[in-house]
């Protein structure tokens, strides 16, 4: 690397604090955004813990990335300005798939669930980050970028900018952005849908920056005024204890794997979607969506039968 790159998240910390304070005052004055003290405290502690956990696990991630780049890269991309743009787009695509798998594979959900565990949606929720991300296979989705030859330092820099971008979209204070912006980019409206636990909004809008990935891969759902978002998990957490928040899904996986009969079921408890069980006794997001759709159809059918006065 011919020059040093700063850490975008470190630079952005004062901006994060200023924006949280602005949202707090806006919510206090207008009542349009809500904060709950213990919920906010948990989010902020999770954010602080995440930076510590990230620093502790950085050596492994960096070593693996450079090992792949040094030994297997196919091309030399250099450090021109346009390489940064290509890296940013490819990193955002990798992020999309990491994020999507973070919702569809319980192993990766165990790390990501933390970010969705708040029943509030405000800028403090953006800081409710995982402590155990490095225990998942997420980095594998970025290896192709190193394989084609882009310096990992550039990719990590772009990932930092991506993370900073995603901070401002965690708010109810902004309704909709201009249409062209809503089409191309991830916005507060799109991301509210992603955090909502309403059945019709489950498993949608995984994008980091470019909304185009959700439109391309069929996971885009727009926010409907008739269906206000409710935030949190399908089955809410019931604790503000940071350790329980960080580890509850890992404990659940271990308990399920120990209790499962047969190797296949043990592995499926790790890699199948959250909520999967061999006997179907719990609900996956697909089952919840299907059930909600059936009920909606049933209600519509009943309404059709009622004669108009």
């Amino acid at each position: 690397m011919p020059f040093d790159l700063p850490n975008p998240t470190e630079i952005a910390v004062p901006l994060f604090i200023i924006l949280i304070l602005i949202e707090l005052l806006y919510g206090w004055r207008t009542g349009k955004t809500r904060f709950e003290a213990k919920d906010t405290l948990t989010s902020l502690i999770m954010g602080t813990g995440s930076t510590v956990a990230g620093a502790l696990s950085a050596t492994f991630v960096i070593t693996l990335s450079y090992w792949v780049w040094n030994n297997f890269s196919l091309f030399d991309w250099g450090y021109a300005w346009w390489v940064f743009i290509v890296a940013f787009i490819l990193d955002d695509l990798a992020y999309y798939w990491i994020h999507r798998m973070g919702h569809r594979m319980r192993w990766m959900w165990a790390a990501h669930v933390i970010h969705h565990s708040s029943q509030h949606y405000n800028l403090s929720t953006a800081l409710r980050q995982t402590w155990t991300g490095s225990l998942t296979p997420g980095i594998l989705f970025k290896l192709p970028i190193f394989l084609i030859g882009i310096d990992p330092t550039i990719v990590f820099f772009c990932a930092g900018i991506n993370l900073v971008y995603q901070f401002w979209i965690h708010t109810e204070a902004i309704d909709k952005c201009p249409r062209w912006f809503e089409y191309l980019f991830n916005t507060p409206s799109h991301h509210r849908v992603h955090h909502a636990n309403n059945p019709q909004y489950l498993d949608a809008n995984y994008a980091g920056v470019f909304m185009i990935w959700d439109r391309m891969f069929g996971s885009f759902i727009p926010e409907e005024k008739s269906e206000p978002c409710r935030y949190g998990l399908v089955s809410d957490l019931g604790t503000f204890n940071p350790l329980r928040v960080a580890l509850h899904e890992w404990v659940g996986i271990i308990k399920d794997m120990i209790g499962a009969t047969g190797l296949k079921n043990k592995i499926l408890f790790l890699i199948a979607p959250p909520g999967w069980t061999p006997d179907g006794s719990r609900l996956t997001s697909d089952m919840i969506k299907e059930r909600a759709k059936l009920l909606k159809d049933k209600k519509a059918h009943q309404n059709d039968k009622i004669p108009a006065e």
Partner: peptide, 26 residues
């Protein structure tokens, strides 16, 4: 410096917590 940064973050965390506790209904 890492410890100083951590302490700084924790002060920020409790400052925001205090503000939310004070401003929002319970």
């Amino acid at each position: 410096p890492e410890l100083a940064q951590l302490l700084q973050s924790l002060i920020g965390v409790f400052f925001v917590f205090g503000l939310v506790y004070w401003l929002f209904p319970k």
